[in-house]
Protein backbone atom coordinates (compact mmCIF):
# COMPACT_ATOMS: atom_id res chain seq x y z
CA UNK A 1 0.00 0.00 0.00
CA UNK A 2 1.45 3.37 -1.04
CA UNK A 3 0.38 6.77 0.27
CA UNK A 4 -0.45 9.59 -2.11
CA UNK A 5 0.10 13.00 -0.54
CA UNK A 6 -0.91 16.50 -1.53
CA UNK A 7 2.09 17.85 -3.45
CA UNK A 8 4.24 20.66 -2.07
CA UNK A 9 3.42 23.58 -4.37
CA UNK A 10 4.30 26.46 -2.05
CA UNK A 11 7.81 26.12 -0.63
CA UNK A 12 7.49 29.32 1.43
CA UNK A 13 4.41 28.06 3.25
CA UNK A 14 4.96 24.32 3.72
CA UNK A 15 1.63 23.78 5.49
CA UNK A 16 -0.46 25.98 3.19
CA UNK A 17 -3.95 24.74 2.39
CA UNK A 18 -5.03 23.96 -1.14
CA UNK A 19 -7.93 22.42 -3.02
CA UNK A 20 -8.27 19.00 -4.58
CA UNK A 21 -9.39 20.41 -7.93
CA UNK A 22 -9.99 17.32 -10.07
CA UNK A 23 -9.79 13.57 -9.83
CA UNK A 24 -9.25 12.03 -13.25
CA UNK A 25 -9.81 8.55 -11.87
CA UNK A 26 -12.61 7.08 -9.81
CA UNK A 27 -12.29 5.43 -6.42
CA UNK A 28 -11.38 1.79 -6.93
CA UNK A 29 -9.90 2.22 -10.43
CA UNK A 30 -6.81 0.25 -11.45
CA UNK A 31 -3.96 2.71 -12.00
CA UNK A 32 -0.44 2.36 -13.33
CA UNK A 33 2.63 3.90 -11.74
CA UNK A 34 3.17 7.40 -13.15
CA UNK A 35 -0.40 7.77 -14.35
CA UNK A 36 -2.10 11.12 -13.84
CA UNK A 37 -4.52 10.77 -10.94
CA UNK A 38 -5.59 14.32 -10.25
CA UNK A 39 -4.92 18.00 -10.16
CA UNK A 40 -4.53 20.16 -7.06
CA UNK A 41 -4.32 23.89 -6.58
CA UNK A 42 -2.73 26.17 -3.98
CA UNK A 43 -3.71 29.80 -4.46
CA UNK A 44 -3.80 29.94 -8.27
CA UNK A 45 -0.96 27.50 -8.85
CA UNK A 46 -2.00 24.05 -9.97
CA UNK A 47 -0.03 20.84 -9.80
CA UNK A 48 -0.36 17.23 -10.87
CA UNK A 49 -0.87 14.18 -8.70
CA UNK A 50 0.75 11.11 -10.25
CA UNK A 51 0.32 7.51 -9.14
CA UNK A 52 3.39 6.48 -7.09
CA UNK A 53 2.68 2.79 -7.67
CA UNK A 54 0.59 0.38 -9.69
CA UNK A 55 -2.57 -0.96 -8.11
CA UNK A 56 -6.10 -0.07 -7.05
CA UNK A 57 -6.58 3.57 -6.05
CA UNK A 58 -8.56 4.67 -3.01
CA UNK A 59 -9.52 8.35 -3.00
CA UNK A 60 -9.57 9.85 0.51
CA UNK A 61 -10.36 13.49 -0.29
CA UNK A 62 -13.32 14.55 -2.43
CA UNK A 63 -13.14 16.97 -5.34
CA UNK A 64 -13.30 20.64 -4.35
CA UNK A 65 -12.41 19.75 -0.75
CA UNK A 66 -9.53 21.62 0.92
CA UNK A 67 -6.43 19.83 2.14
CA UNK A 68 -3.04 20.82 3.51
CA UNK A 69 0.12 20.25 1.53
CA UNK A 70 1.60 16.92 2.52
CA UNK A 71 -1.77 15.59 3.69
CA UNK A 72 -2.77 12.04 2.74
CA UNK A 73 -5.23 12.33 -0.15
CA UNK A 74 -5.26 8.79 -1.62
CA UNK A 75 -3.76 5.32 -1.37
CA UNK A 76 -2.69 2.86 -4.00
CA UNK A 77 -3.29 -0.71 -2.80
Amino acid sequence: MTDVRFPQLSQEQPDAEGVLATWFVADGDQVASGQLLGEVMVEKVSGEVLAPATGRVRLLVAEDQTARQGELIARVE
Binding site: F24, A26, D29, A32, T54
Partner: peptide, 23 residues
Protein backbone atom coordinates in the same frame (compact mmCIF):
# COMPACT_ATOMS: atom_id res chain seq x y z
CA UNK B 1 -1.06 8.89 -20.38
CA UNK B 2 -0.51 5.71 -22.29
CA UNK B 3 0.80 2.73 -20.42
CA UNK B 4 3.63 1.34 -22.47
CA UNK B 5 6.22 -0.05 -20.07
CA UNK B 6 5.45 -3.71 -19.94
CA UNK B 7 2.92 -6.43 -20.45
CA UNK B 8 2.51 -6.74 -16.69
CA UNK B 9 1.13 -3.20 -16.39
CA UNK B 10 -2.61 -3.39 -15.80
CA UNK B 11 -4.97 -2.17 -18.47
CA UNK B 12 -5.82 1.48 -18.22
CA UNK B 13 -9.10 2.26 -16.52
CA UNK B 14 -11.94 1.61 -18.94
CA UNK B 15 -12.64 5.31 -19.09
CA UNK B 16 -9.82 7.78 -18.95
CA UNK B 17 -10.93 11.33 -18.25
CA UNK B 18 -9.09 14.49 -19.22
CA UNK B 19 -9.72 18.20 -19.01
CA UNK B 20 -10.22 19.97 -22.32
CA UNK B 21 -6.83 21.67 -21.88
CA UNK B 22 -5.07 18.32 -21.43
CA UNK B 23 -6.95 16.82 -24.35
Amino acid sequence: MSVTESATAPAEPAVRRLTTARA
